[in-house]
Amino acid sequence: MEELLGLLRIHVNRGVNLAVRNVRTSDPYIIFGMGNQSLKTEVIDRDVNPVWDEDLTLSIRDLEMPIQLTVYDCDRFSSRFNMDDEMGDAEFDINTFIEDLRMDYTDFPDGTILAKQQPSRQNCLAEASTVILREGKDLQTFASD
């Protein structure tokens, strides 16, 4: 078994203008995966602008292992087939955060952009994702349309 290198806390804030998968709305939830770990947020009923405000924690055992994020629509009527609709996905590396931990940001002002991830076929981001310094901590934001 690989050695535990640390823990990564993920704060899931909200979704904005998510895809409609059930006539007029969706019942979204997010699954975060890293290696054999999988974490799921709460299902938010009938909302394409959901607010989760949840904290999830991943165990980091391999710095090269990317984190996958997949947004699903919970399809309650086809639960016998277990076929929730995928609404979107993204993948990100934790190396940016590890590099940032090694930096001394005491003289940097709050709100400093530390890194940007541009949309590509590999990450399926709708817009650039930024890593921002907030109250001495790295905060990565994802936008989705």
Rank of each mutant, 00 (worst) to 15 (best):
K40N: 10
Y105E: 08
I30D: 02
I31G: 01
K137Q: 09
S38N: 05
F32S: 04
A126R: 04
I10M: 04
I44Q: 03
R14Y: 11
S26G: 05
P50I: 02
M83W: 08
L125P: 01
D84A: 05
N49R: 05
P28S: 14
D107H: 09
E86S: 09
F97L: 15
Q68C: 04
D145H: 07
A126N: 03
T25H: 02
Q68Y: 12
Y72K: 09
I31W: 02
M83A: 15
R9Y: 06
G136N: 14
R24E: 15
G6M: 11
D138C: 15
M83E: 07
R76A: 12
N82V: 13
D53R: 10
S26L: 01
P66L: 05
D100E: 08
E64Q: 12
G15W: 00
Q140I: 09
F81Y: 15
D93S: 14
R121M: 10
S59Q: 15
M1F: 09
F77C: 11
R21H: 09
R102A: 09
D62P: 06
L69W: 00
G33R: 14
K40E: 14
F77A: 14
H11W: 09
L101N: 08
F97R: 01
V23H: 11
F142P: 00
E99H: 11
M103Y: 11
N82C: 14
G35K: 05
R14L: 14
S144M: 12
A19G: 04
N49P: 05
I94R: 11
R80F: 13
T130P: 00
F32I: 00
R21C: 12
S38T: 09
D84V: 03
R61G: 03
D53I: 01
T41A: 13
N49G: 01
L133V: 04
R24W: 10
D73M: 02
M87R: 08
T130D: 07
Q117A: 15
I67H: 02
R46Y: 07
G15E: 07
D107M: 08
W52F: 10
E42F: 11
D75K: 13
M1Q: 10
E54N: 08
E127N: 01
S38Y: 03
R80E: 12
M65I: 06
R46S: 13
S79W: 05
V23S: 13
Q118E: 10
R9I: 07
R121V: 05
T130W: 02
E64N: 14
T106R: 07
M65W: 04
